[in-house]
């Protein structure tokens, strides 16, 4: 990692601006923050890895005290064979007050801010508290994550499948779910097929 001293591109300035919020988050939730990345002076989006028990409080803190009114997206990543297997990924954004009031260009001292928070969830117990009470938009995003990954959001008001048919068996975006079908293993190819299990390829 080689941090550049001053952010030069507009994107880097946006990333660098959120580093202060990340510091505040780490200070407040020190014990619950497993890891954090300040983005290297704007090279990346500042990111915190937060314990799942604290995510609702972290979201409330970001929204009420740091002004992140917009939850851009909720999704998950399946790191098969790594524990904790899943990471639920939240992307937050702060709309500057001037922009909320109708001014197009954010003032230089108050740019838009982007922040990413990740919550690990173990493979044998993929349950994460819901954020629907803090960010209503999380409703469909969490349903989608549940539908495709099988991660349950505790306390969600309406946790049903949203994209797949209601009677579908399995969670398609998990890495051990085949893209089309499980290849049939014969004696001549079973070694090659078993080698890549449980990550199903075709």
């Amino acid at each position: 990692m080689n941090p550049s001293p001053t952010p030069t591109t507009p994107l880097a300035r946006v990333h660098a601006a959120a580093a202060a919020d990340l510091t505040a988050l780490v200070e407040r939730f020190g014990a619950a923050v497993a890891a954090h990345d300040d983005g290297g002076a704007g090279a990346r989006e500042p990111t915190a890895v937060v314990d799942r028990a604290a995510i609702a409080d972290v979201a409330r803190f970001l929204r009420d005290e740091r002004g992140y009114q917009l939850l851009r997206s909720v999704t998950a990543v399946d790191y098969l064979r790594v524990e904790p297997r899943f990471q639920v990924v939240y992307h937050f954004a702060r709309i500057p007050a001037a922009v909320m009031a109708g001014q197009a260009a954010p003032p230089p001292d108050d740019p838009a801010r982007l922040l990413c928070v990740k919550v690990p969830a173990p493979g044998d117990d993929p349950v994460v508290p819901t954020l629907t009470a803090v960010y209503p938009t999380a409703n469909w995003h969490e349903r989608e994550t549940y539908d495709l990954f099988g991660i349950e959001f505790a306390g969600h008001p309406d946790l049903r499948r949203i994209l797949m048919p209601a009677d579908y068996d399995g969670f398609p975006l998990r890495k051990d779910h085949p893209l089309r079908y499980e290849e049939i293993a014969f004696t001549f190819n079973q070694e090659a097929i078993y080698r890549q299990k449980p990550q199903a390829k075709e």
Binding site: L11, P96, V99, M100, A104, A112
Partner: peptide, 17 residues
């Protein structure tokens, strides 16, 4: 609704600034 949030201004890419 009156909120001028536009990523081309708020988080410029492709030199929109």
């Amino acid at each position: 609704t009156g909120v001028a949030y536009d990523l081309r201004k708020a988080v410029p890419y492709c030199g929109y600034e």
